[in-house]
């Protein structure tokens, strides 16, 4: 096989995977930027979005409409969790916030098991999304779902970019991320900004969940946890709290994983996750502010 074409093929895979990581990491970083909270329950919005889509689709709605509703359900779940669990502990020490979100993820995953049982379910997608697209005489192959993933991610990012630079609420969110206290002092409705941030972050996670389920073909209650951990790495590599950093981190991580699997000896690839989390630790130690973020105090 032509090496150049192989690289193009793997590049497409990397961008597709990186898009999913970026979608999850951006929400994680947005919430962290404002509340200084490492939100473990963020990954479960993927599960909520995917199950929401599955149920609405099964009830008879066409897939596209069901997916849209699923994303909305994910956003709603994020807002509800913020209201019930996170608002009462707002302003508490880092560790309290982290532990609260860990408890929320535990509750949500077990709620998923209670309602849907722990065995994976098929995630039916329209046939057109599974159709293979072949280029260069079959040497480059990808499915329509890869194209949809990349296109929807770009669209969602463009929308987010417009929102945070052109609207009052978006600017307010950035102000709150800069300095929550000062934003409150100049009269911004911080509660509302935080709700909007959670809604957007969770909608992104919901979208990522639908796309993830569409790519893997299954939904299960703990489907969000591994992508969440990867998104942590992406967000920290990019610079935790920075939206553009999370974007860069997501694609860097996607590229790295594909690189390990596609270009390194096959004895290395089982250690992919160990390498990724090793990278996380290296970044925390030597470049804790990530690639894109302003300096902050994290070490002794």
């Amino acid at each position: 096989m032509n090496m150049g074409l192989y690289i193009v093929q793997q590049g497409i895979n990397a961008v597709s995977l990186g898009s999913l990581y970026a979608l999850v990491a951006i929400g994680l970083s947005m919430v962290f930027g404002i509340l200084r909270m490492t939100n473990f329950a963020h990954g479960d919005m993927m599960m909520v979005g995917a199950f929401g889509t599955l149920l609405i689709n099964a009830a008879g709605a066409p897939f596209w409409l069901a997916a849209l509703c699923g994303v909305a359900v994910g956003a709603a779940a994020g807002v509800i969790v913020e209201r019930l669990a996170y608002r009462p502990v707002r302003g508490a020490p880092d560790v309290t916030l982290l532990l609260t979100s860990l408890a929320v993820t535990y509750i949500l995953e077990n709620l998923g098991i209670l309602i849907f049982s722990s065995s994976p379910r098929n995630f039916p997608i329209p046939d057109i999304m599974n159709s293979a697209i072949q280029l260069a005489g079959g040497q480059i192959t990808f499915t329509a779902i890869n194209v949809v993933t990349i296109a929807l991610t770009v669209a969602a990012l463009a929308l987010l970019g417009w929102f945070v630079t052109r609207t009052d609420v978006g600017l307010g969110m950035r102000a709150a991320a800069e300095d929550l206290g000062a934003a409150q002092m100049v009269g911004l409705d911080v509660d509302r900004l935080i709700v909007v941030a959670f809604a957007i972050a969770s909608a992104f996670a919901g979208l990522a969940g639908v796309l993830w389920a569409a790519q893997s073909g299954i939904v299960e209650p703990d489907m969000g946890f591994t992508p969440l951990l990867k998104a942590f790495v992406a967000a920290i590599v990019g610079g935790f709290g920075s939206i553009s950093g999370a974007l860069v981190g997501g694609y860097v991580l996607g590229a790295l994983e594909i690189l390990i699997v596609a270009f390194l000896p096959s004895s290395v690839s089982p250690y992919r996750d160990a390498i990724v989390f090793g990278l996380l630790i290296v970044f925390l130690l030597f470049k804790p502010n990530g690639l894109m973020n302003r300096p902050q105090e994290v070490k002794l």
Binding site: L98, F232, G278
Partner: peptide, 16 residues
């Protein structure tokens, strides 16, 4: 490391 950074890093240790 301090705060949430040490939590995330030690979670990385668990995964490794």
């Amino acid at each position: 490391l301090s705060g949430y950074f040490v939590s995330v890093a030690t979670l990385g240790f668990l995964i490794i």
